[in-house]
Lab assay of single mutants.
Amino acid sequence: EVTIKANLIFANGSTQTAEFKGTFEKATSEAYAYADTSKKDNGEYTVDVADKGYTLNIKFAG
Rank of each mutant, 00 (worst) to 15 (best):
Glu1Ala: 10
Glu1Ser: 11
Glu1His: 12
Glu1Pro: 10
Glu1Asn: 11
Glu1Arg: 10
Glu1Tyr: 14
Val2Lys: 05
Val2Thr: 06
Val2His: 07
Val2Ala: 06
Val2Phe: 06
Val2Pro: 03
Val2Cys: 11
Val2Gln: 05
Thr3Pro: 02
Thr3Lys: 07
Thr3Ala: 06
Thr3His: 06
Thr3Cys: 12
Thr3Ser: 08
Ile4Thr: 00
Ile4His: 01
Ile4Asp: 00
Ile4Tyr: 01
Ile4Met: 03
Ile4Val: 10
Lys5Ser: 07
Lys5Gly: 03
Lys5Pro: 00
Lys5Phe: 10
Ala6His: 01
Ala6Pro: 00
Asn7Val: 15
Asn7Leu: 12
Asn7Gln: 08
Asn7Met: 11
Leu8His: 01
Leu8Ser: 02
Leu8Trp: 04
Leu8Val: 06
Leu8Asp: 00
Leu8Cys: 05
Leu8Ala: 02
Leu8Pro: 00
Leu8Asn: 00
Ile9Glu: 06
Ile9Lys: 07
Ile9Thr: 12
Ile9Asp: 03
Phe10Val: 02
Phe10Thr: 03
Phe10Ser: 03
Phe10Gly: 02
Phe10Ile: 02
Phe10Leu: 07
Phe10Asp: 02
Phe10Asn: 03
Phe10His: 04
Ala11Trp: 10
Ala11Gly: 08
Ala11Val: 09
Ala11Glu: 07
Ala11Leu: 08
Ala11Asp: 06
Ala11Arg: 10
Asn12Ala: 05
Asn12Gln: 05
Asn12His: 06
Asn12Val: 04
Asn12Glu: 05
Asn12Arg: 04
Gly13Ala: 05
Gly13Leu: 05
Gly13Val: 03
Gly13Met: 06
Gly13Pro: 00
Gly13Asn: 06
Ser14Phe: 13
Ser14Arg: 13
Ser14Leu: 13
Ser14Thr: 14
Ser14His: 13
Ser14Pro: 06
Thr15Gln: 11
Thr15Trp: 10
Thr15Pro: 05
Thr15Lys: 11
Thr15Ile: 15
Thr15Met: 13
Gln16Ser: 11
Gln16Thr: 12
Gln16Glu: 14
Gln16Met: 14
Thr17Leu: 09
Thr17Met: 11
Thr17Phe: 11
Thr17Glu: 08
Thr17Arg: 09
Thr17Val: 12
Thr17Asn: 07
Thr17Gln: 10
Thr17His: 12
Thr17Tyr: 13
Ala18Asn: 08
Ala18Ile: 15
Ala18Gln: 13
Ala18Arg: 15
Ala18Pro: 02
Glu19Ile: 14
Glu19Tyr: 15
Glu19Trp: 15
Glu19Thr: 13
Glu19Ala: 09
Phe20Lys: 00
Phe20Cys: 03
Phe20Trp: 05
Phe20Gln: 00
Phe20Asn: 00
Phe20Ser: 00
Phe20Ile: 02
Lys21Met: 09
Lys21Tyr: 13
Lys21Gly: 05
Lys21Arg: 14
Lys21His: 13
Gly22Gln: 02
Gly22Phe: 03
Gly22Met: 02
Gly22Ile: 02
Thr23Ser: 11
Thr23Met: 06
Thr23Gly: 06
Thr23Val: 07
Thr23Phe: 07
Thr23Arg: 06
Thr23Asp: 07
Thr23His: 06
Phe24Trp: 11
Phe24Pro: 05
Phe24Val: 07
Phe24Asn: 03
Phe24Asp: 02
Phe24Gln: 05
Phe24Thr: 04
Glu25Gly: 08
Glu25Pro: 07
Glu25Ala: 12
Glu25Gln: 11
Glu25Trp: 09
Lys26Phe: 12
Lys26Asp: 12
Lys26Leu: 10
Lys26Pro: 01
Lys26Met: 12
Lys26Cys: 11
Ala27Phe: 02
Ala27His: 00
Ala27Arg: 01
Ala27Tyr: 01
Ala27Val: 04
Ala27Gln: 01
Ala27Asn: 01
Thr28Ile: 14
Thr28Ser: 08
Thr28Val: 13
Thr28Gly: 03
Thr28Glu: 05
Thr28Ala: 06
Thr28Asp: 01
Ser29Pro: 02
Ser29Phe: 12
Ser29Asp: 09
Ser29Ala: 15
Ser29Thr: 11
Ser29Lys: 14
Ser29Val: 10
Ser29Cys: 14
Ser29Ile: 12
Ser29His: 11
Glu30Phe: 07
Glu30Ala: 14
Glu30Arg: 08
Glu30His: 07
Glu30Pro: 01
Ala31Gly: 03
Ala31Ile: 06
Ala31Gln: 00
Ala31Trp: 02
Tyr32His: 06
Tyr32Glu: 02
Tyr32Asp: 01
Tyr32Ser: 02
Tyr32Trp: 07
Tyr32Lys: 05
Ala33Trp: 08
Ala33Thr: 08
Ala33Ile: 08
Ala33Phe: 08
Ala33His: 10
Ala33Tyr: 08
Ala33Leu: 10
Tyr34Phe: 14
Tyr34Ala: 05
Tyr34Ser: 03
Tyr34Gln: 04
Tyr34Cys: 06
Tyr34Trp: 15
Ala35Cys: 09
Ala35Ser: 04
Ala35Asp: 01
Ala35Thr: 02
Ala35Glu: 01
Ala35Pro: 01
Asp36Lys: 06
Asp36Thr: 07
Asp36Glu: 14
Asp36Leu: 07
Asp36Trp: 06
Asp36Ile: 06
Asp36Ala: 09
Asp36Met: 08
Asp36Gln: 09
Asp36Gly: 05
Asp36Ser: 07
Thr37Phe: 14
Thr37Ser: 15
Thr37Met: 15
Thr37Gly: 13
Thr37Ile: 15
Thr37Cys: 15
Thr37Tyr: 14
Thr37Glu: 15
Ser38Pro: 02
Ser38Gln: 15
Ser38Arg: 15
Ser38Thr: 11
Ser38Tyr: 15
Ser38Cys: 15
Lys39Gln: 08
Lys39Phe: 08
Lys39Arg: 12
Lys39Gly: 08
Lys39Val: 14
Lys40Trp: 11
Lys40Asp: 09
Lys40Val: 12
Lys40Gln: 12
Lys40Glu: 11
Lys40Ile: 13
Lys40Tyr: 10
Lys40Ala: 13
Lys40Phe: 11
Asp41Asn: 11
Asp41Val: 13
Asp41Cys: 15
Asp41Tyr: 14
Asp41His: 13
Asp41Met: 13
Asp41Phe: 13
Asp41Trp: 14
Asn42Ile: 05
Asn42Gly: 08
Asn42Pro: 03
Asn42Arg: 09
Asn42Met: 10
Gly43Trp: 05
Gly43His: 04
Gly43Val: 04
Gly43Glu: 07
Gly43Gln: 05
Glu44Thr: 10
Glu44Gln: 10
Glu44Met: 10
Glu44Cys: 13
Glu44Lys: 07
Glu44Asp: 12
Glu44Ala: 11
Glu44Arg: 07
Tyr45Arg: 00
Tyr45Pro: 02
Tyr45Cys: 03
Tyr45Ala: 02
Tyr45Met: 03
Tyr45His: 02
Tyr45Asp: 01
Tyr45Phe: 07
Tyr45Ser: 02
Thr46Leu: 07
Thr46Ser: 10
Thr46Gln: 09
Thr46Tyr: 09
Thr46Ile: 11
Val47Pro: 01
Val47Thr: 06
Val47Asn: 01
Val47Asp: 01
Val47Arg: 01
Val47Met: 05
Val47Ala: 05
Asp48Met: 12
Asp48Phe: 13
Asp48Thr: 14
Asp48Glu: 15
Asp48Pro: 01
Asp48Asn: 11
Asp48Lys: 09
Val49Asn: 04
Val49Tyr: 09
Val49Lys: 08
Val49Leu: 09
Val49Ser: 09
Val49Trp: 10
Val49Gln: 06
Val49Asp: 03
Val49Arg: 07
Ala50Lys: 11
Ala50His: 10
Ala50Pro: 03
Ala50Thr: 13
Ala50Tyr: 10
Ala50Glu: 12
Ala50Ser: 11
Ala50Leu: 14
Asp51Arg: 03
Asp51Ile: 03
Asp51Thr: 02
Asp51Cys: 07
Asp51His: 05
Lys52Arg: 13
Lys52Met: 14
Lys52Asn: 15
Lys52Ala: 14
Lys52Cys: 15
Lys52Pro: 03
Lys52His: 14
Lys52Val: 06
Gly53Arg: 02
Gly53Lys: 02
Gly53Asn: 03
Gly53Ala: 03
Gly53Met: 03
Gly53Tyr: 02
Gly53Phe: 02
Tyr54Cys: 08
Tyr54Leu: 13
Tyr54Met: 11
Thr55Phe: 05
Thr55Pro: 00
Thr55Asp: 02
Thr55Trp: 04
Leu56Glu: 00
Leu56Cys: 02
Leu56Tyr: 04
Leu56Asn: 00
Leu56Trp: 04
Asn57Arg: 05
Asn57Tyr: 12
Asn57Val: 11
Asn57Met: 07
Asn57Gly: 03
Asn57Cys: 08
Asn57Leu: 09
Ile58Phe: 15
Ile58Met: 10
Ile58Pro: 00
Ile58Asn: 00
Lys59Arg: 14
Lys59Tyr: 15
Lys59Pro: 01
Lys59Gln: 10
Lys59Ile: 15
Lys59His: 13
Lys59Ala: 08
Lys59Val: 13
Lys59Asp: 04
Phe60Asn: 00
Phe60Leu: 02
Phe60Gly: 00
Phe60Ser: 00
Phe60Tyr: 11
Phe60Val: 01
Ala61Lys: 13
Ala61His: 14
Ala61Thr: 13
Ala61Cys: 12
Ala61Leu: 14
Ala61Asn: 12
Gly62Ala: 10
Gly62Phe: 09
Gly62Cys: 10
